[in-house]
Design a protein around this nucleic acid. Structure first.
Lengths: 190, 190
DNA sequence: ACCATAACTGTCCGATCGGTCAGCTATGAC
DNA sequence: GTCATAGCTGACCGATCGGACAGTTATGGT
């Protein structure tokens, strides 16, 4: 049987992934056609489908590292609790967002269909657990909303084109996230 | 000449807008076909294009109120400065996000093509000014990043399906946003 | 020289999209 | 009755999509 398996690495293959990542991140997955990618790469559309079994296979290969990173964070956070969980979740999540900024942009552009993509593992459950960790395992409305906001804040701020060096952005996002999650420093205490 | 103008209100017209808003918000604009809308409404695809000049015209009618609301906030924030600007921006932005949760979901699902949609006015400039207000007119990295994060936080938390009553969600989002933007309360306050 | 295989492409295909158009039906004015 | 008009529809159109496939060229082992 001549099953078209994933072809081994080659010069063109790398160029395809590179161009596809760029196009997906800037224009979205659905809005980017195989023709667009082929034009950017400088090869034929059929050549793309020689190196990859489908358009989705290209996306999968691009998203897999990010999905694995998220899964690893999930595992790492599982045994932690309370403030420890929240802080580890913040740092881990921010680092993840920084490392996969372009991949996040792809997800961001096609949320509805993308969050269910197999390459990202079971997003719903993973995200739910990440939220739980960010909230320090608390179910109080205040903490749940704050966790949800940190999730969105880092997600969007990481994908945005803020004119700030990466290292600085990372540190500020961590600080701001912890500020968001920490109890109010007002007169009342709990 | 017989220019097909926007038809006046009618029962079916209302149902179309209602169904379209629901479908766009849950599945995204691009991913929702006229056939999908027609099926949901229970009429023919051609009937949609009798009441609306195009698919885009449906979207425009759905997004226009949100665009006007954003423009109004823009005007309201213009004369304010510093902490006053930041707090007014937070409250105004959160209220806007709450009022147009479903519309935001539409934008969220098709960011690349949607942020440039005429119905939302000149998004880039408006968002930039909103960010400036959120940062309290500061250009310090810390404040700029925090503002960007609040923007994303409210945007996503508002569009998410958190199981929290609207009023409570609004108040918590405002509190958390102010926490994010507020200067660090010294090394340790607790 | 021969040939198997890899790398690549031109061309075609079915599906689906947004949109057009001629025509059907119901209603109300005269 | 007659006629204009509003509301609505089935059938069709061109464009574009992802993908299939036969065929061409380049390469390296024997």
């Amino acid at each position: 049987m001549v099953v078209p398996m994933a072809r081994p690495a080659s010069a063109l293959r790398g160029h395809i992934l590179e161009s596809a990542l760029h196009l997906f991140a800037s224009g979205g997955y659905e809005a980017t056609s195989l023709h667009d990618i082929a034009t950017a790469v400088g090869c034929s559309k059929a050549s793309l489908l020689y190196h990859f079994t489908s358009k989705d296979a290209i996306l999968t290969e691009l998203l897999t590292p990010a999905g694995e990173g998220l899964a690893a964070l999930d595992t790492q956070l599982a045994p932690l609790d309370g403030r420890e969980a929240a802080e580890a979740a913040v740092i881990g999540y921010v680092d993840l967002a920084m490392r996969f900024r372009r991949e996040i942009k792809i997800l961001f552009a096609d949320i509805p269909g993308m969050t269910a993509h197999p390459a990202m593992g079971s997003i719903p459950g993973t995200v739910e657990r990440l939220l739980d960790a960010l909230a320090g395992r608390s179910t109080r409305t205040r903490d749940v909303v704050a966790a949800q906001m940190v999730l969105g804040a880092v997600f969007l701020a990481g994908a945005s084109d803020v004119d700030v060096p990466a290292q600085e952005l990372r540190d500020e996002m961590i600080r701001a996230s912890l500020r968001t999650l920490r109890p109010d420093p007002g007169p009342e205490r709990d």
